[in-house]
């Protein structure tokens, strides 16, 4: 009772990275709160999947295994999660801020009348005293940028349980336990939770695309913002990225302007990256963006504006035009690398 639950997404027996990241975070929170970490997996042909979840710290794994439960569909998954939460009364429930998690979590929160905070960038445990003087111990502090990334808000759910939050893929670290541990499985009786009406939406066809652009695992990212000016000007960034063996990223403003594809978007509404080198070209540095790249090992900014906020987190800021600077970088690298 009153443990931490993580909803784990699977696709053909493979657990989503975001779920493993949430388990890693969940076990840190569970340790702090001195409670257990529980995983819930809903799908088909799940036997054996618990072993990997134990490896990330799950103490109890709830399995709902039924041919009708894969691929994911909103209503049956909602019924199982809400039913289980009503019985188990978790204090915290975490979901990936993925297409799936952002479809499921609000539905669950509405059914349970508990609050949900979307796209958290940090989760902490802390106390709260409200204006009436009521004290709350050990609440989940859900921290997220708001208002297009111009403010950072700390959200709490003082009176409702579970305290629910979603987190985007890549925001939390994914780390296996150093030493293997085991746990227990709880096989759920699916028919106890789902209703026939839960299957009114039928999936006729499904095409999964392998992620073609993978900026998350690139060691070097050359990223462009609105200041790049056009889709054509991005070619220069592609050239530098290819010479250095990296990938091209973009800010939301650049993606919204049509200069780059959404798959390349770095930041709060894109992906979070931690490359060893991040070169920010024509990016002003709104939190919307920096939330997704500030943990890069080294940051170089190239910007005409010497007062651009990005310069405050950059290790090096080159004040100048990217059409001048980038060709010089390419030229020097070609001449001097092995």
């Amino acid at each position: 009772m009153n443990n931490i639950f993580v909803y784990c997404e699977t696709e053909k027996g493979k657990i989503a990275d975001v779920s493993l990241e949430l388990l890693t975070k969940g076990r840190e929170l569970a340790k702090r709160l001195n409670c257990k970490l529980e995983a819930i997996v809903i799908g088909h042909r799940l036997s054996g999947i618990e072993k990997e979840l134990y490896g990330y710290g799950a103490d109890i794994v709830h399995l709902a295994d039924d041919a009708r439960l894969e691929p994911y569909s909103t209503l049956p998954h909602t019924s199982i999660v809400t039913g289980l939460f009503r019985e188990e009364k978790p204090q915290i429930a975490l979901f990936g801020a993925s297409s799936l998690g952002r479809d499921l979590a609000p539905r669950v929160s509405s059914a349970l009348k508990s609050g949900l905070t979307a796209d958290c960038t940090s989760l902490e445990i802390g106390d709260h005293r409200d204006t009436k003087g009521n004290e709350y111990k050990d609440l989940l502090l859900q921290i997220r940028p708001a208002f297009g990334g111009n403010i950072i808000a700390t959200i709490i759910n003082p009176d409702h349980r579970p305290q629910m939050a979603t987190v985007r893929e890549g925001v939390m670290r994914k780390e296996k336990l150093a030493e293997a541990k085991t746990g227990e499985v709880n096989v759920l009786d699916v028919n106890k939770y789902v209703r026939d009406e839960d299957f009114v939406i039928s999936i006729i066809d499904r095409h999964l695309e392998e992620r073609k652009i993978d900026i998350k695992s690139a060691p070097i990212i050359v990223s462009g913002g609105y200041g790049v000016g056009s889709r054509e000007n991005f070619d220069l960034l592609f050239e530098l990225a290819s010479v250095l063996g990296g990938e091209v990223g973009a800010s939301r403003a650049a993606v919204d302007a049509g200069y780059a594809d959404h798959a390349r978007q770095v930041g709060q509404t894109g992906v979070t990256v931690r490359p060893k080198l991040y070169i920010a070209c024509g990016i002003s540095g709104q939190v919307q963006h920096t939330a997704g790249m500030q943990e890069s090992a080294m940051i170089i900014s190239i910007n005409n504006d010497s007062n651009a906020p990005i310069n405050q987190i950059a290790d090096y800021s080159i004040v100048g035009d990217l059409s001048t600077v980038i060709p010089k970088m390419i030229k020097y690298y070609r001449a001097n690398s092995k």
Partner: peptide
């Protein structure tokens, strides 16, 4: 059910940054 505990204007952590010219 959700309450805003705190709102912060975005403040960058200033780290030592070397300025270079082009």
């Amino acid at each position: 059910p959700t309450k805003v505990k705190k709102v912060e204007n975005v403040v960058f952590q200033v780290k030592e940054s070397k300025k270079l010219s082009d």
